[in-house]
Structure formats: C-alpha cells, structure tokens
Design a protein around this nucleic acid. Structure first.
Lengths: 205, 205
DNA sequence: CGCGCCACTTACCAGATGGTAGAGAATGGG
DNA sequence: CCCATTCTCTACCATCTGGTAAGTGGCGCG
C-alpha cells in the first residue's frame, strides 16, 4: 500500500520537473513515463488527463512553496528581517528545487485555468503578506505605498532574479552557487533601499 | 514585388503575436496560417522551418525593442530622467504591443538556441546600459553596486510588472489602462528608491 | 479455492504536427 | 510566343499526441 502512494508521488515529482523545466506543452506524457520507467497509462491511471496532472502538480508546488514561506515567517521577527528571511528561503528553493519556481513561472504564462488554480492556492499567502506590509507601513518601518503593487514588484524581482538564468547570462553573470549568493545579497540591498524607511529598522519589533 | 515583402511581413507579425501570446510550442504553423488566411506551405516557403520562423521573429522583436529604447535614451538627459524614460517606453510597449514583451519572456524560457540568438541581438543594448549605470555610479548619482546585477534586478522587475497580468489579478489588481499607469508610477518610485542617491538628482546633467 | 480489487500493462486509435513533393497561376524578359 | 522565376496552392506523409479499451498478474479475504 506504500507502493500505491509511491508511484503516484514519483509521477508527480517527475511531472513537476518537466513542467517546471522544459514546460507543459513541451512535455509529453510519454516523456514523463519514460523517465520513470513506467508506461504512459500508469500516469493516466492516477490522473485522468494531462490537465489533471498539471492541477495536481500545481497543488503540490503551491503547498511546498507555502510551507517554505511559512517556515521563514515563523522563524523571523517582523520587520525587515522577515523580508530578508523570506527572500533567503526563495533563493534556497531556487537552488534546491529550481523546477518549483520554474513551474510557478510556467503556470502564470499558461493562463487560466491553470493560473487560476495556482492563484487560488496561494491566495491566503498573498493576503497575509499584504497584511504584513500594511502593518509595517502603518508602523512607519516601510515606505507608504500600495501594498499590492509593492508585493507585485517584489515578487517579479525575486522570481526573476532567482530563475532567469538565460537573462543573467545575457548581462554577463555566469550561473553558479557563488554568483547566486552575490545576486541574493545584491537583491536584498535593492529591496531594502526600495522598501525600508531609513533609520527605522533598529527599533523595529 | 511589394507583394512578396507584404506576405512575409504578415507572417512574421502573426507569428510574433502567437509566439509571444500562447507560446511557441502552443502555436502550430497551421494556426498561424489560418489566422492569415493562407496555407501552411506559404509560411514554409518564406521560412524553411518553424525554428527558422522563430529566429526571424526574434530578430524582428529585438530590433523593435532596441529601437524603442534608443528613442527613449535619445530623447532624455542622463541620470534618473533617462531611466524613467526607458521604463515609460517599456510600459508603452506593454500596452501597445504586449506580444513583444511576451515573446522576450517566452524566448528566455525556451533556452538555447533561441535564447542565445536573442541575447546576441540585444548584447549591444546591454553593454550600453551597463556603461550608463557605471557612469552614473561614478558620478555619485546612483548607489554603488554591481551594474550587472542592478540591471538584472531592474529587468526582472520591469518585465515582470509589465507582463504578469495573471499574477496582478491574483494580488487584486485588475488589468486596464488606469491600473497600468498606477503600476508604472509605483514601479518608478520603487526603482528610484532603490537606485538613486538621495539629493543627487537635481544636480545631474 | 475463488472472487474481486488494485496496480499496471499491451494494443490501439483519431487527430494534430512539422515537413516534403510537386503542380498551377501570374509575371516579365528575350 | 515561350521560357523561367516567383509565389501560392493541393495532396500527402511519418511521427507524435492525449486518450480509450481491454486485459494481466498478484494479493487479500470469504
């Protein structure tokens, strides 16, 4: 009975890697099956269609992302350190599970209905993040502006910097762990400059 | 003889819209042909293969993007106003030719060899941008940091904000011209805070 | 034993895909 | 008038796609 769950999860994992890497359309069910050493029908046994498989992969990814962010939030005090912790955890994900961020990127590209499912999954996270930003702004730790748009800018920047390897190569940055660390540092500076009210952080809660 | 160029350009245009919208793999040559009211073989007469068509579309897009940015640079003084002009021109593109930014996003996702061609096309632009940032930093108008990474962050943010309509919807921002203007304003604030050394801009050239 | 359920397979299919072969119309130059 | 070139078409094809139908073997349970 462990077997049952085992295959199902292996399918999910392989699909996540392919959908988040080469992409959804670029991946055939045969590809996924071949990589697992099973037949395509085994996949269709667990998931009635390719679209259903994508849905399941989205749910899985959203849950994993949410988990990582929850951990980052829970283990950091409010204020700038929390933002830093969240960005660090996203970069850790970019290193350890690049396919996960790749999938998120891919899904936003695919549009509805996949994108809708993802955003539904992540909505609670967004709500909490917005609340956090509002509180920080109200407390005077952060520049006053529309939290939704700040969230949007920060999201785009973090995902972009963490995933756009090709673009990085274009601007002359070679990928690698050391470069990734430097990028993270640079990005944190960038965000800090953009968000934090100077002189307010040492006194934050 | 005008005829010749005409069909060819219409093919290019239709392909740009499809590749930059639904995506490269999601678009069949028959789709493009149907939208133009010609047969698929007409496309294959001008472009030997789908990949070759993509290459041509990439060149076209890179040229148009470069043109828009050149204009923005030429019509603005150095310093912060130039950055603002560039961001504005990208947003104008996002409104008037969304498929163009979509294509760039798509190509960076596809990876080599398409991505390589795009980055080759845009390399001169990147070099100039880097030079500009270095000069601004040297003049003390901009925070000192690695220009390549600043460029990367700015690119991710601008492209992200200008293209990720789905994500925007997720955080509660409905697309539309008014919303777009607000996003642009917010983004400019964001970038300005992140990049500009306070008090330095009034004295810039 | 034997019945049925679970996990998985082989066999198959209809439709779409990128691409080839080659013919038909229009044009223009000798 | 005829040939050659340019452009576009119809006809066709091998391959791959997601998905269906129909089993097969094993394991637990009465």
């Amino acid at each position: 009975m462990a077997r049952t769950t085992d295959t199902r999860e292996r399918v999910l994992q392989a699909a996540l890697e392919s959908f988040g890497g080469p992409g959804y359309e670029a991946t055939s069910l045969d590809d996924v099956a071949a990589e697992l050493g099973v037949s395509k029908q085994t996949i269709l046994y667990y998931f009635p269609s390719k679209a259903a498989l994508l849905d399941a992969v989205i749910d899985l990814s959203a849950a994993e992302l949410a988990g990582a962010l929850e951990d980052a939030v829970a283990s950091s005090p409010p204020g700038w350190p929390r933002i830093e912790a969240v960005v660090r955890s996203v970069f850790r994900l970019a290193l350890r599970r690049p396919e996960l961020l790749g999938l998120i990127r891919e899904v936003t590209r695919l549009g509805p209905p996949a994108a809708t499912r993802l955003t539904d999954d992540l909505e609670p996270l967004v709500v909490r993040a917005r609340g956090f930003l509002e509180a920080e702004m109200a407390a005077g730790h952060m520049r006053r502006s529309d939290p939704r748009l700040v969230l949007m800018s920060a999201y785009s920047t973090v995902i972009g910097v963490a995933t756009e390897v090709e673009v990085l190569r274009a601007v002359g940055v070679e990928p690698g762990m050391k470069a990734m660390v430097r990028r993270r540092t640079e990005l944190l500076d960038f965000l800090k400059s953009a968000l934090v009210v100077p002189g307010s952080e040492p006194t934050s809660t």
